[in-house]
């Protein structure tokens, strides 16, 4: 469409040619950026998939070699517990913001949650390290790591839940109230089911982010060569991103293989959560039509 506009509107051929040149350059930039993305993908998969032997999934790391089972389980446990915290707090925050908050507070909460999304992950990690690992004396622990992830994932869940709850049709709620539903019932049988696809999308986006985080975990979850014990405190937890970060700087080929395998696994996990999240979005768009 813009093509024909440019052709007819350009008063001189030169002007049109300059415009075309700029557009070509911008398309070249787009191709370059997407090309780099493919390069990174191809690199991680080319190095990671051959290294990803089935036995890795069932053996824990041993020093510089071994498998990844402790890190895989650790990552999943940290993310799941972090999600449990963030779902309760995030959806609670959104319900209060949408249903109860005075207009001024609505703005303040949304603003603070947006600002929280910009806090560097290492600051969250160092805060919890000082507060829980050191001062509270819990040591490197599951609960400190899960909390770090929860703080980091919170804005994504609150925003998604806030937008979806705001979009629940008022008529539905008023109908429920007219039929005698209590407030808790309105929330549980009208608000949440209606907003569910949007909230789930937010939770999946948060999951993808939680899976890939490293900095908030280094000084909260610590690292362990053993399977997670599920003890809330005094028991460090291993996770995949740690393997990528530290094992690649070891001078051993086996540890490099582990780092690549862990990176490939992470990319696969994140790709899958993104895929599911996108299909939820599509589903919602189709339903809306």
């Amino acid at each position: 469409m813009t093509n024909t506009f440019a052709e007819t509107a350009g008063k001189t051929a030169l002007k049109t040619r300059i415009s075309q040149a700029w557009w070509s350059l911008s398309v070249a930039c787009l191709v370059a950026v997407i090309g780099l993305l493919f390069a990174i993908f191809a690199f991680v998969l080319a190095r990671g998939l051959p290294a990803l032997k089935p036995s890795l999934l069932f053996t824990p790391t041993q020093g510089i070699a071994g498998g990844l089972s402790n890190a895989i389980v650790g990552t999943l446990v940290l993310v799941v517990i972090g999600l449990l915290i963030v779902i309760v707090v995030g959806i609670g925050t959104a319900i209060w913001t949408v249903e109860f908050a005075p207009p001024g507070m609505k703005r303040v909460i949304r603003f603070m949650v947006d600002v929280l999304a910009g806090v560097p992950s290492i600051v969250v990690g160092y805060f919890l390290y000082v507060a829980l690992v050191e001062e509270a004396g819990w040591g490197f622990s599951l609960i400190a790591g899960a909390l770090a992830l929860a703080i980091f994932m919170l804005p994504y869940v609150v925003r998604a839940a806030d937008v979806s709850l705001t979009n629940v049709p008022r008529a539905l709620k008023e109908g429920a109230v007219a039929l005698g539903a209590r407030p808790a019932m309105v929330v549980s049988s009208i608000d949440l089911p209606y907003a569910l696809p949007g909230i789930l999308t937010g939770i999946l986006v948060a999951t993808g982010i939680g899976l890939g985080e490293t900095a908030p975990l280094i000084y909260t979850a610590g690292w362990s060569n053993y399977m997670p014990t599920l003890a809330p405190t005094h028991s460090p937890v291993g996770y995949l991103t740690y393997v990528v970060w530290t094992y690649i700087s070891q001078p051993f080929e086996q540890s490099h293989q582990l780092a690549y395998a862990a990176a490939a696994l992470l990319m696969i996990f994140i790709f899958l959560t993104n895929l599911v999240a996108r299909s939820f979005v599509e589903y919602r768009l189709n339903r809306g039509r």
Binding site: W96, T97, I109, M112, V115, L116, F127, A131, A184
Partner: peptide
């Protein structure tokens, strides 16, 4: 209804307070 309303409001309010305050808590503590 009143109880249901108050309870819901209080529980979600606590969650909202946490989301609101966590930045100040982190900054203050550090």
């Amino acid at each position: 209804r009143k109880i249901s309303q108050t309870l819901l409001r209080a529980l979600t309010g606590v969650a909202a307070l946490f989301s609101f305050a966590i930045i100040f808590i982190m900054l203050f503590f550090l």
